[in-house]
Design a protein around this nucleic acid. Structure first.
Lengths: 262, 262
DNA sequence: ATAATAGTGTCTTTTAGACACTATAGA
DNA sequence: TCTATAGTGTCTAAAAGACACTATTAT
């Protein structure tokens, strides 16, 4: 049955921390302090420790490397290719962390350098010949803002793949769950929520149809009774997330790929 | 950043092998040959070996323990609770394997005893006080056939949870992908395909609406040109799976739970 | 014939998509 | 007032649910 274990295998956790900041869909990256890939940008993460469950490791690493606590976490996928890390055979489990706009990434103790980057600035290490490197952010729809301003970032290890998978996971969850509310502060307007969808999916949605969809779903949103003024225009009602976590039928997004069933 | 690795952690793979057999939705179980849980039913699986990727381990274990090859595999989830295995901290990655009706489970070399069991015979080890043990199979709709005939099986380790998660994963994938075709032989009728949905979801579907749904979706099914006769009644057209793997919009099933967004 | 299974058509209800309009604030 | 944002209503098209009917075989 079970063959002999391989003692040299180690287990790690990597975090894909996403937020909406500066009118863009962004990911948290840390600069690697040690070899391999010293100085390169990478996902925050670290090794499983004695007596820890995977989720505890994810929570601890998030706190240690970024100072964030109480963030919603979703397990996404495991990666175990023997050559994915030059230090040896390291199996890593990726977690998606979604947080509302945050004070500053440098609050962390461990990672001297942590930055938020628009996901569309990520580049697959596969610098093929001619065309501009494929990017995660480009896939859905036309890019909105300052465009190709920043430099493309090539991540360490297979972190581009891990990030791309988690981002696609998040985009899919937006269709079927209330995960978008995790990008918002506790109280938010329907416009805030729609803005999350628009930035994550990369195209604009009809505000009337969006409102109808999220308001018609029972217990999806809950009125706080408050309003947000201060800007020109009619004040918007404030909501908090309701107890219903699923959106059925789904909020449909524009299909693009014809992926594998997995 | 990355703290010291924990050398005593080991990585394994567990397989949830599902099929449709004897007019029932069934799972493949093996009897454990060694301690811990010697003699108890468990999921097939084993440890990651030198130089193996996770999918390779899953493929190898499936072959070694059941003799199956060329089966479709989907990675489902990782489990890493420190107490989940008495031998130490073992992180396991579960894979869903779906196969059409197969010759016999005992073709394997390694597992002396392997059996197919209806998923509704699985019992959570949590033998709570009063009500009959919760079962995976019961959740969706009324049970169809010989009912409570067999004994409930309590699986080793946390394998009940792993199986339940993978079964729910499969049920969900049926809504959105062509995974149901993996339960069928290369050529099948629409009735065969509908039968898979009915057994996996646990309730009957309207045959007219089902046909319309799967036929209307472009490239989901492909006519072979052949027919299947032999039974009384009009011969049914034979199909093979098409190149489209996704069903959009989804084939909706009756919602039941109000689960967490994860 | 009769029974059994395969396949098509139609009606109704629900939902999505497109879009015009009213409401309430700041400047 | 003008402009910007929030929110409602309406029409149309697409899809789902329910169900009656025709088609083709074995016996």
């Amino acid at each position: 049955m079970r063959s002999g274990p391989l003692a040299s295998t180690r287990v790690a956790v990597d975090l894909v921390v996403l937020t909406v900041r500066d009118d863009a869909f962004q990911i948290l990256l840390v600069e690697r302090a040690n070899d391999p890939f010293k100085g390169r940008w990478a996902l925050p993460g670290g090794f499983l420790q004695e007596g820890e469950d995977l989720l505890e490791t994810a929570d601890r690493e998030l706190r240690e490397e970024t100072g964030l606590t109480g963030v919603d976490l979703w397990q996404v996928k495991a990666y175990g290719h023997p050559d994915r890390d030059p230090r040896g055979h390291i199996v890593t489990i990726s977690f998606l962390a979604v947080a509302p706009r945050l004070p500053s990434p440098n609050a962390g103790t461990d990672a001297a350098n942590a930055i938020w980057q628009p996901v569309m600035n990520l580049s697959s290490g596969q610098s093929k010949a001619s065309p501009p490197s494929e990017t995660v952010g480009l896939s859905p729809g036309p890019k909105s803002h300052d465009a190709v301003s920043s430099v493309m970032l090539e991540l360490a290890f297979d972190h581009y793949t891990i990030a791309a998978d988690a981002i696609e996971y998040a985009r899919g969850k937006l269709e079927q769950t209330n995960i978008a509310t995790a990008f918002c502060p506790p109280e938010f307007t329907i416009g805030d929520l729609r803005h999350v969808y628009e930035l994550v999916w990369g195209y604009t949605l009809d505000e009337r149809n969006f409102s109808r969809k999220v308001l018609k779903t029972e217990n999806f949103l809950e009125e706080t009774g408050g309003y947000r003024g201060g800007q020109p225009g009619r004040p918007a009602k404030l909501y908090r997330k309701g107890c219903a976590t699923k959106l059925r039928p789904a909020m449909l997004r524009i299909a693009e790929e014809q992926g594998h069933a997995a």
